[in-house]
Design a protein around this nucleic acid. Sequence first.
RNA 1: GCUGGAGUGGUGGAAUUGGUAUACACGUGCGACUCAAAAUCGCAUGCCUUAUGGCUUGAGGGUUCGAGUCCCUCCUCCAGCACCA
Length: 1130
Amino acid sequence: MKYDHKKIEKKWQEKWEKQEAHKIADTEQGKKNYYTLVEFPYPSGNLHIGHWYAFAVPDIFARFKRMQGHNVLFPIGFDSFGLPAENAAIKNKVDPEKWTYENIARMTEQLKSMGASFDWSRQFATSDPDYYKWTQWLFLELHKKGLAERGKAIVNWDPVDKTVLANEQVLPDGTAERSGAQVEKKELEQWFLKITDYAERLLEDLGELNWPEEIKQSQREWIGRSEGAEIKFPVDGKYKFVLLHGFKATPSDNFHPWLKKELEKQGHEVVVPLLPNTNEPNEEEWVETVLSATDYDEKTIICGHSLGAVTALKVAEKLQDKIAGITLVGGFIDPRFKDHSRNFENTFKWEFDVRKIKNITGFIKILHDINDIAVSGEQAKRLGKTLGFPVATIEAKDSHFCGTQEPDVLKAIIPSINIFTTRPDTLFGATYLVLSPEHEAVENLKSQISNWDEVFQYIGIAANKPEIERTADNKEKAGVELKGIKAINPANNEEIPIWIADYVLAEYGTGAIMAVPAHDQRDFEFAGKFKLPIKNVIEPVFVQKTEPGKVREGKDFVERDAIIAIVKHWSGDKYIGLKWKQVDWDTLITGGIEEGQTSEEAAVAEIIEETGYRNPKLIKELPCTHSKFFHVPKDENRFAHFSALYFELENGDHDEISLEEKEKHEVVWLTREEMERFRLPESHRFSWNCLFDDMHVYLGDGTLVNSGKFDGMKSEDAKQKITEFVDGKKKTIYRLHDWLISRQRYWGCPIPIVYDPDGIPHPIPEKHLPWLLPKDVDFTPTGEPPLASSEELKKRTEKIFGEGWRPEYDTMDTFVDSSWYFLRYIDPHNEKEFASQEKLKKWMPVERYSGGAEHTTMHLLYSRFFHKALFDLGLVNKKEPYRERLNRGIILGTDGRKMSKRWGNVIDPDEHVKMVGADSVRMYLAFIGPYNAVGHYPWDTGGIAGTRRFLERVWKLQKKIQRPDSSVQCPELERLLHQTVKKVTEDIKNFKFNTAISTLMICVNMLDKQDAIMQSEYKSLLLLLAPFAPYITEELWGRLGLTAENTSIHTQKWPTHDEQKIQEQTFTIAIQVNSKVRDELEVSVEDEREEIEEKAKSLDKVNKWVQDKEIWQIVYIKGKLLNIVTKENS
RNA sequence: GCUGGAGUGGUGGAAUUGGUAUACACGUGCGACUCAAAAUCGCAUGCCUUAUGGCUUGAGGGUUCGAGUCCCUCCUCCAGCACCA
């Protein structure tokens, strides 16, 4: 009978489904639970070959694990929210829900044809309300813990389609994929998940994970930790501060006397007017007093405390000329206090001309005390929102900033720019500041910037530049100086200019940097272009790491002041080098500085001594360097401090060199080119480079110079000391940003939030979950998010929460859905919990997770974060969700290119299944290459015919079962079978399906050579093959007609091997002469080494090569080889 | 540029971790069966050479009796990050 794959596969698929063969229980007697996972698919509508590769191949492992006696959870579902459904809706006017669920139905059928052992009873789609109810519930749990917050974020806005675009809808040139319009930036209030709170743990816990290094490294980079310091640079010198006290206070109350003293100490002018009738204040009187207390100009800063803060705003409304800024300490916007009302409720007007205030002042700073007894956080937030400035929430010394000293107020009151640097040791070399064009200080200092038009223009250019242009390779640096203001370098109190430039990114660090052109490549380029000063503050320290001169461990260093001299020829473009005779190194002229000598004197003395030339003329001094090396002739570790000097010889006059010097080294004249190839130590090389590069950027660590009292300190120590010296803050920052989850889209999980009439967000109570996605939505782009068009949603919200309330219109990023799906598989029908604790404990963590390399950073990082957050909430009991992760490779088209409609090289799996059967397709995919490596494997039509051929041979083998099981087994065959069991078992464990199959092929080739085989032998083969080819093995197993075990092959026990039976009795070993194979020898296990040696020596071929040479040694590796080494060849 | 991974026949890829390089499969060639073709089966197949023999794991060097595997230098490709302070 022929192998009819169509008939067989149909038959067993139906049977398995009817029997619910792959349904698994949460516990099974005597079996250990094992959870293996594959990434669930997006229901795009068609199953492609990539899906087969992703699901059918790991199924081999799941089936294997099951036969080994585990209770294996191997689930499948659909990641069904997302953009394509919505695009289909816009384009073809189909309902996204209908589109999605029709696709799911179609793909389910295709998936079942694979013969994968998925437990379909656990299947779900993330767009099922039963599922997203729990996505919403988990979001609210995170919200409760402060891990979900609102913030401003820039979105891509398509001005033609009037819609927000996802990043993937924007082409690299900054135009919209669909409309072709230039995408604009728009700032919206959106929801963030605070993944940065977990940055450190996400990084740290990578260590213990059994993941490929490649993936861990990618995640480390994505998190991008860097350690450094935040340092404040005060802006400009002198201001006039007008301090306004509050209700029932005077200038001598609270922090005012102290603050006045501190500010005056720094050279600022301070005015603290006494405000009249402090117990019964009146707006007009107070404002009048303040206005007549002093003059106001662009150097004036008004700082109001409590009611003084309100007064400050009222004063601003009345001012004629611009002022520098306003600081509100414990301010408020209406007389709704936490404790009790005050009697100025009616004597002040609680309306503010915000436009006027913002026009007249550069900046507004709002300080709120977290423990304020009178002013609530809510009130502070309202104040910030009304004025449009952020609120800084801090802990005051005394509630409502009533302490006699409030250092935070002092810090906040002086305009300053906060920068982040990883190199605080170079602070003395900071010769200018650079802010990102978006930096808030630019707007805040507007009133003091004299070239505002120019600055404004530059900001406009920078803002509209598409991302790639801004970050393009080797882009020419651009920027504008903020004229009229200066910053103060806090280390040396020098005034330095402030620039804005787009090479500084707003979203990293503080959005501002100190530029140290001498020790940073980018700053160096920028300084070069705009002729900014470059100040060297680090002298390099080179440590010799290679011989000769490699530093000897454990020996003390002898410190020496020394010189390096570069000497140029009197007429040619040649320079002196020294070739050392006793030591294998080349140097420039070098030597120690004696007591009382200047470096120039020492250098001249060395030149004369070592070369004999009499007339060197000092041309210039080069930067100093330091070097740690092992001085071979002196036999000691040296720490040399080099002064480097450049000389030109005036003429060729020279004396004879002493014999002693001649023995030490040879003097050679080298052209510049030859000097490049001269093997100079690093410190000499550095000096040489300095001669030709006008200024040399040195990026490494070293010894400080030009740094006041820190001179001579090592970079490493100076980092901390200088940070402390300028009152900076040690800080660790991450490249990773908070996770923006708001999407202005329809087909996603609704964010379970509603807004009250004041616009304050509130979580939707659990009893209203799932908060359903409305169906009456208009998809034509209007500029509003789609959910805003739903009448039903609006009515639903008002009915439950009251009039004036509105729902959140944004939906969630689909990565949220997929951040916890693996937990739902464990308990997919639970209506009371996202999954029961008891069941979670039974299954988690996922032992092995296989997926695509494209999810290395996003999905894997997001779901790790989610899981850690749930761990902290006590909702899961493991720190990490996945114990082992494997990234699979990609199947390419037959032409070796990525499969794409464009190339016409797309492989249709259904077609191949029809032609050769699912078993052959599965096996071919498993055979194509190692599954546990990210390879790219071209599809080969000949290759798949090969696996089909293999299965045909297995099929035909059944005719050869003609030897009774009681007959004597051929020892060779028996050994091969045991070896096959061992190798296949190990390979499947390691996901090396390709070599497992090749082992099975070897086994079949051997069986095929026999005239007759035993049923037991055939059974072993089928069992080993069962995970790979589930249909054909099930059929063949059935045909064996085994009454006692006439059940599915897939519930049988996995065969085991006997190590004893693998041991061979005789082997062929290689006989080598001088490591070259010359002959082979049959030896038995019992043979002694001496015996084998004697036999080998008597071989003709061996004698031919050994001849009469003396044998030096014989190497014997048991079971492998014997190597006869003769004397001449050793 | 930085980081990680990799480079083996005409092709996909093996190699027990330092021990006979090129398993297994594809492709190709020859043969058998056939009137013929397909399918199937058998044999051959790294390169050079007349058999003997020599060469060969991106290139060069080193360690070793012995290196695809370990060390150094360089080249190429792939992936991630990239003006990240």
